[in-house]
Amino acid sequence: QQIPLRAVGHFSQNTKQIEIERAFYGRLPQATGMNLAVSFNPMDQIGVQAADALRHLRSGAFDVMAVLVGQVARDEPFFDGLDLIGVSTNVEDLQKAVEAGREAFDKRLQERFNARVMALWPFGPQYFFCNSPVRSVADLRGLKVRSYTPSMTALVQHFGAIPVTLQFSEVYPSLQRGLVTCGITSAVSAYAGNWGEVTTHVLPLSVAGGIQGHFMSNAAWRRFTPEQQAKLTAAFRELETELWTFARVSDAQSLACLAGKPDCTERKFTNTVSAVPPEDDARVREAVSSVVLPTFRDSCNRVWADCAAVWNRTVGAARGYTIP
């Protein structure tokens, strides 16, 4: 007998991730030896808002969802803690932070939303893309930077820049016409969105990893026997590994193409990708301690009194930060 599995995928503009997801769900019945009837739709194609993912899992509307962790932090601020702005400035550090936080994350997800973590992976390091010569965070002073989360605003303001809120689709025209000077996004998104046409300088200081997840509702989970569950877990782990690898590779490729390097095999741009000056590391660390962590603590402890303490024990310990 067929077991239905209603899955929601990533945004369809992220064509590569969608491809990976589609292939994954395509081979899932075979990989798990189950007679699964998977229906798969990218979230924007059915008009599902990224921020509603946890609610859709909890209500049983969907069985598995691709989740933009930063967006669903609306309903659970602790989730933002996995990938707080400025805390992990490269993929290796991010992986350590995610491993340290995974268990607490999953526990909270199960308790509050009756869903479980199947995979956690980064979309890719988020850099500064600017249409003026920005070679260090010190150069951001006085510039307009598109920001979309409270901690990003705190960080940007700390560097003396002016945070501006814009919908993602408005960022390209706004960069082009000088409404903002810099946007923060992954190299993959910037490249896919042709930002290279409207930016001149990339500061590849990763302020976040764009953490995403694949979560399954416990209602769906319980439809499976323990053996089947083990097979599902293994399959999703494999997907997770694939997406981590893809994040690394695609980041390097996109940066190369934005810079117009010879090893780029697709469309080339002529952006200047600066080397991040060593002083920036200390500047970011200072900003994280003085503004990002307090912002996070205030919003998170309001909902969950243990939040900061749990974060200190997990992600904080792995990355050498302590929320006071």
Partner: peptide
Amino acid sequence: SPALVDSLGTQ
């Protein structure tokens, strides 16, 4: 599924 009828509010 009925859960999708119920998601009218969210949508």
